[in-house]
Design a protein around this nucleic acid. Structure first.
Lengths: 186, 186
DNA sequence: TAGGTAGTTCAAGGTGTCTTGAACGTCAAG
DNA sequence: CTTGACGTTCAAGACACCTTGAACTACCTA
């Protein structure tokens, strides 16, 4: 085993994507990329998720054709988001990465990281605007109120999702329902 | 009135953002921009929404400091998405734009335009992957299934939202609930 | 000490997208 | 026919973000 390093491995072991892996990793990469992360965040996570095993950075690197730098940065970021775990097997082998498998929990974390702050800030700005518009015409105030109500709704839904993130989505349902009762129209 | 055209208007009429308008348009612009449209889509819509009135392209242009080209393009796009309506007042005045005010309906349209196609395609790809993996180890198949289940869930939620888009979000709640019943775990 | 692997960092270059403004089309009034 | 407001288009430039790969640290082995 010593002589056969990464390139030209004998059994297309870790490298070489299976056809379904190709499809799935690209699909996930697309959504993730569209959703404002890097496509490669999605590809890496998806591959780790599909193989049950933990892979090394080097394996990810050439299975997905990443540069060395990219492999390092992507894994580090995924790890920071709690979407991937870094594990060291026995002895002193290189780090390996394994995927978080609780999808909902994952989405919750990411939502928190990304939307939480944004939505929260926007909500505050809108509320501030509402305050400033105290003497504006009623229709204007009504419309501002409509905006803040929406912001609050979304903010609430996200928070609840984060708090109780599970696949059943119970939390979100609850929030949407209660908000429903409070404000018929808006 | 004839002599006083756009610049240096006597009463800071249409130009000149009120402080709350400034705050609100920027806030909306930020979310929209973050959400992968142009920041200016958000700013323009928000201004039209806050002023109850329909504004001309020229007014938008200098109230929000847009270039002539941008004003034209942004309004055209908003119009195409059904987020803004183009109206011609009596006689032969220039076009004016007014905002769609049903927030939920609007979001529905946009979701449809943007997510619908993406999520749908991804879902198909994942299902194809599942088919290709027919002879893969069971754990791999289970994981693929998990992904397609998520895709299907989201796809369903979006479709239902689009179909019954209202502020109360009843539709989404219903979908999430039923999907809840069918697949405890995933 | 020399040589190798693992891993990180960062400047440089690449990519795709947004914005600008000039050129152009159209229409109506003079 | 000329002029001027309104509106659209598009090529060029500005810009933001991604990716690359070389340089570097740290650590282990011979």
């Amino acid at each position: 085993m010593k002589g056969y390093l990464r390139e030209g491995s004998v059994l297309g072991d870790t490298s070489a994507l299976q056809p379904w892996e190709k499809l799935a990793t690209e699909a996930v990469g697309t959504v993730i990329g569209f959703w404002n992360f890097k496509r490669n965040h999605g590809r890496v996570w998806a591959l780790l998720f599909l193989r049950d095993t933990a892979l090394t950075a080097a394996e990810l690197q050439d299975t997905l054709s990443l540069s060395k730098g990219a492999a390092s940065m992507i894994t580090r970021e995924l790890e920071a988001w709690g979407v991937v775990r870094r594990v060291r097997s026995v002895g002193d082998a290189p780090w390996r990465f394994e995927a978080e498998t609780d999808l909902m929990h994952m989405i919750g974390r990411v939502l928190q990281e990304r939307e939480g702050e944004l939505v929260g800030r926007v909500r505050l700005d809108l509320e501030e605007a509402e305050r400033l518009a105290k003497h504006a015409p009623p229709e204007v105030r009504r419309r501002l109120a409509k905006l803040t109500a929406l912001a609050a709704l979304v903010d609430g839904a996200i928070r609840s999702f984060i708090a109780t993130a599970r696949f059943d989505a119970t939390g979100v349902v609850r929030v949407l329902q209660t908000s429903l009762r409070r404000k018929r129209s808006t």
